[in-house]
């Protein structure tokens, strides 16, 4: 049995998708796999919620999609970051780290 996984926090899925796509363009299944690998099966991503998120990000103009031949030879819809998507990712990373630092500080303050 795998260790208990906790569901991904609301709103962070978009950020994770942007992060994965900043490494290389890939299709939905590829993103799902990368999420599994990177998070070492700690975070549970409902694969069904991946596609609405992808389409939402595409509508926002942060992603662009293109049908290309995949590694199996079959055509798949590949997503890649747009320039605004890249900017958005940088912003999200920045605010995330500030939030994490702040939470860390508060915890340390309490334990002193």
């Amino acid at each position: 049995m795998p260790s208990p996984r906790f569901p991904i926090p609301q709103g962070t899925l978009d950020m994770l998708i942007l992060q994965i796509l900043s490494l290389e363009p890939t299709h939905g299944y590829g993103i799902a796999q990368r999420l599994e690998q990177i998070s070492k099966s700690v975070v549970q991503v409902n694969q069904g919620s991946l596609y609405p998120a992808l389409h939402r990000l595409e509508q926002k103009g942060w992603l662009q999609a293109e049908w290309k031949e995949s590694e199996t030879g079959r055509e798949a819809k590949f997503y890649s970051l747009t320039r605004t998507g890249r900017k958005q990712l940088a912003e999200e990373k920045d605010s995330w780290s500030r939030l994490a630092t702040a939470v860390q500080l508060i915890f340390e303050e309490g334990s002193k």
């Binding site: 299709h27 939905g28 799902a32 596609y51 995949s70 055509e75 798949a76």
Partner: peptide, 14 residues
């Protein structure tokens, strides 16, 4: 059509 193809690809690969 696109969406259906996309999801079918995912399931087939999986």
């Amino acid at each position: 059509n696109d969406l259906e193809r996309e999801l079918r690809y995912h399931i087939d690969r999986s």
